[in-house]
């Protein structure tokens, strides 16, 4: 008799798609096998013991049996389920966005340990921030638009590092066209060249990039998140940095991300 091969792995659940009446196909990010798809049989049945451990963005320990089309989940135990993130619309949307970015950029079955660690760390930060915000609110703090500034910056941080790990590091030190070191002045930004462009090459600019925007992006690029200072950025500067990063992502993926619309929807509400 042939032995059924089975292996344990940690995984972050990036996505699920319904299959048939009660099953789901999961997209998982794992430390050693990269992005894989797996079948969770019966996980949509009420009372399924596995379902809660296989929710979107759960960080779980799985046992997978090697299957013909998909590996099949035979055991699942959530290690961290980011409970606070799950209870706040804004943080949930940010979580969706991270998952969508990773799903789009990471190829199937390519080990990508740095992306895996980045995603896990970022989810933990989001969860801690959500918990912290909930605590402040419970103590009577009024909701403020600034509540989200830190998370917005974290999204930019994530984008910069993700692009870097995938091999599309944003060019922010030297002109992406002529290579001259960028000076502290207004420069330009050109997604098709992969980053910032100096004033001498201004005929190639897609958009202008203010000195402050360049400074913030460089700071993010060379600083670990826990050391990034609490910056007070005005809305215009935030929007400028976001637009630059999104234009870069759009260029590499040749598409818009679906979560952008959801994030915008929430931004419009509260402004």
């Amino acid at each position: 008799m042939r032995e059924q091969r089975s292996y344990p792995t940690d995984a972050i659940i990036l996505k699920h798609t319904d299959l048939g009446e009660a099953d789901r196909v999961l997209t998982l990010l794992t430390p050693y096998k990269g992005k894989i798809r797996a079948l969770a049989k019966g996980s949509r049945r009420p009372g399924s013991k596995k379902a809660g451990h296989l929710e979107l963005l759960c960080y779980s320990q799985l046992q997978l049996a090697v299957g013909r089309t998909f590996d099949v989940v035979t055991q699942a135990q959530a290690k961290e389920n980011f409970f606070h993130l799950r209870n706040d619309l804004w943080y949930m949307t940010c979580g969706f966005y991270l998952a969508e970015l990773v799903d789009r950029f990471v190829e199937d079955r390519m080990q990508q340990m740095d992306v895996y660690t980045l995603l896990l760390d970022t989810l933990r930060t989001l969860d801690a921030d959500a918990a912290e915000l909930k605590k402040r609110r419970a103590e009577g703090a009024e909701p403020s638009p600034q509540d989200r500034d830190r998370t917005r910056l974290l999204m930019r941080y994530f984008e910069i590092y993700l692009l870097t790990y995938i091999g599309y590091e944003p060019v922010l030190r030297n002109c992406a066209h002529c290579g001259t070191e960028l000076k502290p002045e207004e420069n330009g930004f050109t997604p098709t060249l992969g980053g910032a462009v100096c004033p001498q090459c201004s005929q190639l600019w897609s958009q202008a990039l203010s000195l402050n925007a360049l400074k913030v992006m460089r700071l993010l690029q060379r600083t670990e998140w826990s050391h990034v200072p609490h910056l007070r950025l005005d809305l215009r500067l935030q929007a400028e940095i976001e637009a630059a990063m999104h234009s870069l992502i759009r260029y590499h993926l040749e598409r818009d991300l679906k979560s952008w619309g959801f994030l915008e929807m929430l931004t419009v509400h509260t402004s």
């Binding site: 009420p46 009372g47 809660g52 451990h53």
Partner: peptide, 16 residues
């Protein structure tokens, strides 16, 4: 808790 599920199998989120 979903009907028919044991407390010990329930995940943390459901329990909370």
């Amino acid at each position: 808790l979903p009907l028919g599920s044991d407390l010990e199998y329930a995940d943390e989120g459901t329990l909370s």
